[in-house]
């Protein structure tokens, strides 16, 4: 391949990548955990998981949390103090005959290393606040208990959602854009939408724009020309328009069923 051809090819490849990035919506598979954050997803941990199930789970339980015949390894001091197998390795090789655990002499060094990796990952996953909760991509099957038809009715009627939203406009394909709990959080109270404010000076002049700050003492807006302006509150009248005030008002009214129904409806918008 000549240098020129290589350049053309790489340029074509770059365009193809750019095309994909530009035209393909960002896909986050609903209900699938973010593998980068999942300590159980590493290759050696996956091998260790299989070894644990066939050699250890009978006594220590399927997730190392213990069973009626063996203790939890999550709450084990040697496991938590282990560095690269220096404590766990000896227990696997020599057993703990006084406590009824036989030595596992058939496991080689690489397998013991994988088991050690598995146990460290299990401790990390068990201690974590993010492996099972909403940040992890909590499983969709748990969340879809609502009635999409009832959610649609609420969306179009009682909820008043159509005043600001459209399922063929801003919410088109919304279920493909966010992980389930992320979508549920946005449904309940979306963030990051700045308020609008109009400040009226004593001389009657009005300034409207994006609210930058407001408290009891001062107010600041970015006006329509992009200029920052601030005032002592005692000198001006301030009107604030919060674009998500409708969501706040609904939080005071929702039943759990309303939320689950609405969520089930939004999950149909693919």
């Amino acid at each position: 391949m000549t240098l020129k051809n290589a350049k053309i090819l790489s340029a074509a490849f770059a365009i193809a990548v750019a095309f994909c990035v530009c035209w393909k919506p960002v896909q986050v598979k609903a209900g699938v955990q973010d593998e980068a954050k999942d300590p159980m997803a590493a290759e050696n941990v996956k091998r260790g998981t299989k070894l644990f199930q066939s050699n250890c789970a009978f006594c220590h339980g399927p997730t190392a949390k213990g069973s009626s015949t063996g203790p939890s390894l999550i709450d084990s001091s040697p496991v938590r103090h282990d560095k690269d197998g220096d404590l766990i390795g000896a227990v696997i090789r020599q057993g703990r005959m006084d406590k009824g655990m036989p030595p596992f002499t058939t496991l080689d060094a690489a397998q013991i290393s994988d088991l050690v990796a598995y146990l460290h990952a299990r401790v990390q996953a068990t201690d974590s606040r993010e492996t099972a909760g909403p940040k992890s991509g909590y499983q969709l099957k748990h969340l879809l208990t609502g009635d999409p038809a009832a959610g649609k009715a609420y969306f179009e009627g009682q909820g008043g959602c159509v005043k600001c939203h459209s399922v063929t406009g801003d919410l088109s394909g919304v279920a493909t854009k966010y992980q389930p709990t992320e979508l549920e959080g946005k449904l309940l109270y979306p963030r990051g939408k700045p308020s609008k404010a109009t400040v009226t000076q004593r001389d009657g002049r009005k300034f409207s724009g994006t609210l930058s700050h407001v408290d009891q003492f001062y107010v600041a807006v970015i006006d329509t020309n992009g200029r920052y302006r601030s005032w002592d509150r005692s000198n001006v009248k301030v009107e604030v328009e919060d674009p998500i005030s409708g969501h706040l008002a609904l939080l005071a009214k929702y039943t759990n069923k309303d939320v689950h129904d609405l969520f089930a409806y939004l999950e149909t918008l693919k």
């Binding site: 339980g61 399927p62 997730t63 949390k65 996953a125 068990t126 201690d127 974590s128 606040r129 993010e130 492996t131 099972a132 909760g133 909403p134 940040k135 992890s136 909590y138 748990h142 709990t181 549920e184 959080g185 309940l188 109270y189 706040l248 939080l251 939320v259």
Partner: peptide, 27 residues
């Protein structure tokens, strides 16, 4: 304010992680 609370149990009915769920601090 408002918050939204999830329960996460594993296949054995035990807490799936130490928290056993999670929450969205909404407002």
């Amino acid at each position: 304010g408002y918050s939204f609370w999830y329960l996460a149990l594993d296949e054995n009915g035990l807490a799936a992680d130490h928290q056993g769920g999670g929450s969205l601090a909404l407002y």
